[in-house]
């Protein structure tokens, strides 16, 4: 993913925003903490032409209420996802997200549960069919996820 290209793209997408604040007043996260304010996130993007590595965008719950209600059709979800993608490429993904990706890499799924078969057999459920790990690993490798994981390991070393 070309960071500059993606950044230019979301700045264009944010352009119609006239700062009405409907997104923020619809946001469940902003309702309980000032950490994430979608209106300001959009404003910052347009004003500063860049993404500050604040990590705040990770608090977005992706409920899409903001996008649903935005009167100018700004695709906030896509913008916030892209901001997180860029943040991840810079080594800024939260550790719980990194753990999930590691689990995906080694198991092909994110959820893990000890005694899974016993739990399922209590309800007479068929054995769960699991994906081929090598296929998942290969696809993650091809799409650059392993490189992004490594950039997080490097960040840890620096810190």
């Amino acid at each position: 993913m070309d960071l500059n290209l993606e950044l230019a793209r979301i700045i264009e997408e944010a352009r119609p925003c006239f700062q009405c604040g409907i997104c923020s007043s619809s946001c469940p996260v902003y309702r309980v903490t000032p950490e994430l304010n979608p209106r300001l996130a959009i404003d910052n993007l347009i004003q500063k032409n860049t993404i500050e590595p604040s990590g705040r965008e990770w608090a977005c719950a992706l409920c899409l209420m903001c996008e649903q209600r935005c009167p100018t059709g700004v695709s906030l979800a896509h913008i916030l996802i892209t901001m997180k993608n860029i943040s991840a490429q810079r080594g800024g993904a939260p550790s719980s997200v990194i753990e999930a990706i590691h689990s995906l890499l080694s198991l092909g799924v994110i959820a893990q549960s000890s005694g899974l078969e016993k739990k399922r057999s209590k309800y007479n459920l068929p054995q769960l069919q699991l994906p081929d790990h090598d296929q998942i690993k290969k696809l993650l490798e091809l799409t650059g996820a392993i490189d992004i994981l490594e950039s997080h390991l490097k960040m840890e070393e620096i810190e």
């Binding site: 993913m1 993608n85 993904a93 995906l104 092909g108 994110i110 081929d132 996820a145």
Partner: peptide, 21 residues
């Protein structure tokens, strides 16, 4: 019919991490 699907993948983590993956 049961098939060996992988994680969907979970949008809040995987898509946030890498849209391409």
């Amino acid at each position: 019919i049961d098939l060996p699907f992988n994680c969907c993948p979970e949008p809040n983590t995987v898509r946030s991490f890498s849209s391409e993956s």
